[in-house]
C-alpha cells in the first residue's frame, strides 16, 4: 500500500493520518489544539512534502479580536513530512 499522508482539519485542531497495519490508520493530534483548521495545503512539488494548515485561534477571544492565522510552511506540525 502506498504511504499516504492524510491531513484532517477540524473545528478543534489538525489530525494527521498514515496507513497502519491491518488496513487501519494511525492518527496523531490534535495539532494546534482548539484552533479551527479550515484549510490544509499539501505541497508535493519539492523534495519532501510540506503540509500547511490554515488555522484560526478563537479560544476565549472576542469576535472582534484578530485571530492567529497562518499558512506558513514553518508552522508545519510535527509528524510526517
Amino acid at each position: 500500500m502506498n504511504d499516504v499522508l492524510l491531513a484532517v482539519g477540524t473545528r478543534k485542531g489538525l489530525f494527521l493520518g498514515r496507513p497502519g497495519g491491518g488496513g487501519g490508520w494511525d492518527f496523531t493530534g490534535p495539532h494546534f489544539p482548539m484552533q479551527a483548521v479550515y484549510s490544509v495545503g499539501i505541497d508535493t512539488r519539492g523534495d519532501r512534502p510540506d503540509c500547511w494548515p490554515g488555522r484560526t485561534a478563537r479560544t476565549g477571544a472576542p469576535r472582534s479580536s484578530a485571530p492567529t492565522t497562518s499558512g506558513r510552511a514553518g508552522t508545519s506540525p510535527p509528524g510526517p513530512r
Partner: peptide
C-alpha cells in the same frame, strides 16, 4: 469504504497525498 477515524471534532477539510 472504511471508517478510519471517529469521535474527532467536526471535520472541516481533508487533504491527502502519496509521500512515499
Amino acid at each position: 469504504w472504511r471508517q478510519i477515524a471517529r469521535h474527532l471534532p467536526d471535520v472541516l477539510c481533508v487533504r491527502a497525498a502519496v509521500i512515499g
